[in-house]
């Protein structure tokens, strides 16, 4: 298509500004890659497979790092959070789209406003509430009984001391990502064509059966919601740092304090210049976080495009 010259000029004037986001992402990726090279050369694959954190000032030989605990911590907390948020989000969609009659528009819009509030609230507020309210509450009413009566299950075998642990982080994350998962699922749900709905209802289905059939139609969007939620949970930083306990324990027991990659970065990066290799190790863990986030989001977006093809 031949465009007039002045439009070409407009295009090339905007081009440098539009390239900023591209430049930022590429710069970030290359900085993470280049700066994590020293750590990779020094420690190799053992960075991923060992659980060590012993920085020694001014002594590169003695300093030793392995990221296994934070890596597993991130995977475990984000997975539990995602698994919890999917049924919660599905229940919310069911209530707002099927249970509430269409004339209760006010209640529906109240739900959507509350979900907006949940999604828009600064994450630090969740962190503050999680550390000062949720953690003590869970410690007294859930963790101690859980440990007392179900202590024979390895996941609950360690005695809880503070309430700041892997499980608290997972639960807080599940609250934080629910609005995003809900938004993804509901958007697809409302786009299901009327003819499909009528077809399902004409079979004499109950509300529950109807909902199951409708969810079956938009199944990729449930998976997309899970992937996008997982990405968010894995990349969440400050709220997790405040509740996860920040200790290098492998997450065998959910009631012991642990670490996540983002919490490790938040806690250690400011001191990193003091210790040999630490900055490089942390930038390497940042690269993993970036990869994890980008892959889960890309997969989520691909899933969403599949839903669009279906409905």
């Amino acid at each position: 298509m031949a465009e007039p010259r002045h439009d070409k000029l407009f295009y090339y004037t905007l081009l440098p500004f539009a390239s900023t986001s591209l430049a930022i992402v590429l710069l970030l990726a290359s900085i993470l890659a280049v700066n994590s090279l020293p750590a990779i050369e020094r420690y190799g694959l053992s960075l991923l497979t060992r659980n060590v954190w012993s920085p020694v000032e001014l002594d590169p030989e003695a300093s030793d790092y392995g990221l296994l605990a934070p890596l597993l911590g991130t995977l475990v907390t984000a997975t539990i959070a995602t698994m919890a948020s999917i049924p919660i989000a599905a229940s919310l969609v069911y209530v707002s789209e099927e249970v509430l009659p269409a004339r209760m528009l006010r209640v529906r819009s109240a739900i959507s406003i509350l979900v907006d509030v949940m999604a828009g609230m600064p994450t630090i507020v969740y962190g503050l509430w999680g550390a000062l309210v949720l953690a003590p509450l869970l410690l007294n009413y859930v963790y101690q009984p859980l440990n007392k009566y179900f202590g024979f299950i390895p996941l609950f075998a360690c005695s809880p001391y503070t309430g700041l642990n892997i499980l608290t982080a997972s639960l807080l994350l599940s609250i934080m990502i629910t609005p995003f998962v809900f938004a993804v699922v509901r958007e697809s749900y409302t786009q299901i064509p009327l003819s499909y709905r009528e077809a399902s209802l004409s079979l004499g289905t109950t509300k529950y059966e109807h909902f199951r059939i409708m969810l079956g139609i938009i199944k990729p969007s449930l998976i997309a919601g899970a992937l996008l939620g997982f990405g968010r949970a894995a990349s969440e930083t400050v709220a997790v740092t405040l509740v996860v306990g920040n200790a290098f324990n492998l997450p065998y027991c959910l009631l012991s304090p642990g670490y996540t990659v983002s919490a490790l970065i938040a806690n250690q990066f400011n001191n990193a210049p003091l210790y040999p290799y630490m900055e490089s190790v942390l930038l390497f863990s940042g690269a993993i976080l970036l990869l994890l986030g980008l892959v889960s989001n890309l997969a989520g977006l691909i899933m969403l495009s599949r839903v669009k093809a279906r409905v």
Binding site: S21, I31, R232, S235, L283, L290
Partner: peptide, 12 residues
């Protein structure tokens, strides 16, 4: 960029 962990923006 919308989905990049914001802590990485701080690192950058």
């Amino acid at each position: 960029l919308l989905e990049i962990p914001t802590v990485l923006v701080g690192m950058l």
